[in-house]
């Protein structure tokens, strides 16, 4: 009996890491060139943006909320940064700052909707998602933004993406091999560490976890529940806009069709994160691993020439399995909804 329970415990704790290791071995054997630094960097690069978004979702999950608008915030930041540079012909720095402010503002509105207007979190952020998907296309009448495009008033946009801005998404740092690690990966690692430190080692993070576990108890212990919830949505909004900026810098144009998968991938990463090390709760480390897991899976499948729809299917299946790990096996289904 004891043996069995400890086996289940082990499975819950390390099951996902073992699965990931197995996956790497499997692709290493099956797909030629999978186990090279370049392939690893490619995975990290593909993971960087979804990972950053997923860390934002994690912040809202910690306070017992949820943010469905992250994908739309990211694509809005993509369009906004392009518009600022191409149409308004402003600098890279102003583009970045305006986008970050936009993300913070959207997060503030989300938070106010949830906290003050008492709209359920899923509905509030779903509404915000639709709003943003529409709003980001209004200024250009639904067209993508690039240098030389004609504007609705007939004039031609002459601004262009500055080199400094493009470097955010394209510059590579010498590490092991020259020009290997993209800057966006550095951002991901820095943000993951930052979110982890904030959630695990500061009193603010501690109170946010308390709010997510028992809001009433946290409130009666003197926590400012409303403020922390709003902060969580603002973190989510800002990180989503960071993701959007990196996407714009990588693409070099304001592409209306990009970023369709951002929401699904990043939510999947955050929820898979519940299962890592049997945490059964949202956490920054798990989220980063979750994002990496999704990246490895997709890269491996791509290198094995699996068609794109299989990838969506596999992603969904992995998410469902991760949720089973979290809720059924650990028997602590009380927390969070997914």
């Amino acid at each position: 009996m004891d043996n069995r329970t400890s086996l289940v415990d082990l499975a819950i704790r390390y099951g996902f890491l073992v699965l990931m290791a197995a996956l790497i071995v499997f692709f290493g054997i099956m797909a030629e060139g999978f186990l090279t630094p370049f392939s690893a960097v490619f995975i990290l690069q593909s993971v960087a943006i979804t990972g950053i978004l997923a860390l934002g979702v994690t912040a809202t999950l910690v306070v017992g909320g949820f943010d469905l608008s992250i994908g739309a915030v990211a694509t809005s930041a993509l369009m906004l940064s392009s518009y600022v540079m191409v149409v308004w012909e402003m600098s890279a720095l102003s583009a970045v700052l305006i986008c970050l402010a936009m993300g913070a503002f959207v997060g503030l509105i989300n938070g106010l909707l949830v906290v003050k207007m008492r709209v359920p979190d899923l509905l509030a952020t779903l509404g915000m998602m639709f709003l943003l998907v529409g709003a980001q296309r209004i200024p250009t009448e639904g067209r993508s933004i690039s240098t030389g495009m004609s504007l609705p008033d007939g004039s031609v946009a002459n601004g262009k993406f500055s080199e400094a801005f493009l470097a955010l998404g394209r510059h590579r740092i010498d590490f092991i091999a020259p020009n290997l690690v993209p800057l966006s990966v550095i951002f991901l690692i820095a943000i993951a560490i930052g979110v982890w430190v904030f959630l695990e080692t500061t009193r603010h993070g501690r109170l946010m976890y308390a709010i997510g576990s028992n809001q009433q108890a946290a409130s009666l212990a003197g926590a400012n529940v409303n403020r922390y919830k709003i902060v969580a949505y603002m973190i989510s909004g800002v990180l989503a806009s960071v993701g959007g900026i990196l996407l714009a810098a990588r693409l070099g144009r304001g592409d209306v069709a990009s970023g369709n998968n951002l929401l699904l991938d990043s939510v999947a990463a955050a929820l898979i994160g519940f299962a890592v090390l049997g945490a059964s709760k949202p956490n920054a480390f798990g989220t980063a691993i979750g994002a990496l897991f999704v990246g490895i899976l997709l890269q491996g499948l791509t290198m094995m020439n699996a068609p794109y729809y299989t990838q969506d299917f596999v992603k969904g299946a992995v998410l469902v399995i991760a949720l089973v790990f979290t809720f059924a096996l650990s028997g602590r289904g009380g927390r969070a909804r997914g």
Binding site: T201, T202, R203, A210, G212, N214, Q216, K281
Partner: peptide, 29 residues
């Protein structure tokens, strides 16, 4: 169980919730 216990927390964290500033320096616990 409804108004006080934070189920996800251990004994230590349940005790220190209201007075975290006392256990932290510049917000770090």
């Amino acid at each position: 169980l409804i108004t006080a216990v934070v189920a996800d927390f251990d004994i230590t964290r349940n005790i220190t919730i209201p007075f975290l500033p006392r256990h932290s320096r510049a917000s770090f616990l």
